[in-house]
Design a binder for these strands. Structure first.
Lengths: 247, 247
DNA sequence: GTGTTAACCTTACGTTGTTAAGCAGGAGGA
DNA sequence: TCCTCCTGCTTAACAACGTAAGGTTAACAC
């Protein structure tokens, strides 16, 4: 274990890394309840109390594990979008899809972060994975400057898009909405994950909004002058999506 | 404790109710980690093992507590919207706001549900609060029939709106995005909760979408002719998903 | 009187996170 | 070579946890 001659590198790194790796594996395998100090210790062949030499307590260990996991998120998201044109809507869409994929692949990390209640709400920079927020914000600003999405408060749009994808994966982690979407054939297409398939359909809603086209065109002139937030546009029955019974 | 003469009413109801109430209070006060069998028992003056006479184990107790809490959600949501016109967009907006309020008021219940990992993903009907899903779906269908929102798969719209509000409250429970929204003056208006203030701004994005008006009007003419709904419009990922042509 | 059942109780077991005390061994100075 | 200090662990023990096993008591049926 100990490096023979490289003095400046303390051997402690080995144990600390081993602890983190064992904890990461346990978390991924069985969630937080499978991650006990004794289980981690047993995996790497030390006593449970040895962990306290490297981490203040279990919470600190879990925090490090989760942070490590999410440190990869920023790179993961950048990789997913780097080949797509800057400022494009495709890039934003790919980012959302990547977020969902990352959440699925790191489900236990997500659950830990959004289950543990911090004593006080943490600042966004202290939340593991806040790097993902930076990526998303950059893409939104780019798309806004390129004129591909509406110009409004970018932070609001960022939070909106984040809410959509995060809400989707969170709901999917808690329950299985498969049955409620059984009638939606397209949702059950040959896509790896149902949540991603649904997100593909969300994209049209995100882009076009829920207001029927007729109502929008009718009310566009008057809305030029006043734009109250909770207004109710007069409804004209439109049928933009001709489909059988439910779709 | 024991009722003297009223035979048909077994005394056990008192204890069971007391257990549920104590567990509910402990959960609300200190979250899941404050809810221990011994703490519940101490509150009502029985031994910890007495609880096992009424509940199979801790999980069953927590399940009942959370279910009870969410049983009120459907009534809560209906109350919030009953005075608003059926099929209106206001009704949908009020429903979203009510969901957020309910989540804030029942934060610990939310955390338990979306933190605990069921062995297998549960069916939507088994999820506490699925009554809220029913309310939302009804409002979406009404609004669709009234022509106030676009006609498309209602379940998709339901899941979309649910994702938006659920994602928003989940993000807010995990971190404090106050700083990142510091520049958004409107968000810091005199509204009770920041999340509700933000949701008010989300509503415009939900209704109008992110596509700039100019781009929409320019593209509307050509889309009149060729409009396969599931088609790769702008914004669909480059990962070329094989999509069903049905939706 | 006997038997049954409901509604508790006490005791105890194994596991958990965590602390305290101490030991082995290498490094460094005298 | 001896002493001291620090690092990286160890064992022992603690309180709190969920929960299993079995005893006790009162109410009730026959």
């Amino acid at each position: 274990m100990t490096l023979p001659n490289a003095a400046p590198v303390p051997r402690h790194c080995d144990t600390e890394t081993a602890i983190l790796e064992a904890a990461r594996d346990l978390l991924a395998e069985g969630g937080l309840e499978a991650l006990s100090m004794r289980a981690v210790a047993a995996r790497i062949g030390v006593s449970a109390t040895a962990i306290y030499h490297w981490f203040e307590n279990k919470e600190a260990l879990v925090d490090r594990v989760v942070s490590h996991g999410f440190d990869r998120s920023e790179a993961y998201l950048w990789t997913a979008i780097e080949s797509l044109p800057k400022g494009s809507v495709e890039r934003l869409a790919a980012l959302g899809e990547a977020y969902i994929r990352f959440a699925i692949e790191n489900e236990q990390y997500f659950k830990v972060i959004f289950a543990i209640q911090p004593p006080a709400p943490r600042h966004i920079d202290d939340v593991p994975g806040h790097g993902g927020y930076r990526v998303l914000r950059q893409c939104v600003v780019d798309a806004m400057e390129a004129g591909n999405i509406r110009r409004t408060d970018p932070d609001l749009v960022v939070l909106f898009l984040w809410s959509v994808v995060h809400g989707l994966v969170t709901i999917f982690m808690a329950c299985d909405p498969k049955d409620m979407l059984a009638e939606c054939e397209a949702c059950n297409s040959a896509v790896e994950h149902l949540s991603i398939s649904i997100f593909l359909h969300f994209q049209e809603l995100i882009r076009e909004g829920l207001t029927p086209r007729e109502a929008r065109e009718a009310g566009s002139a008057e809305r030029e002058t006043t734009a109250p937030p909770g207004r109710d546009g007069p409804g004209v029955t439109g049928n933009a999506q001709p489909r059988g019974s439910s779709c």
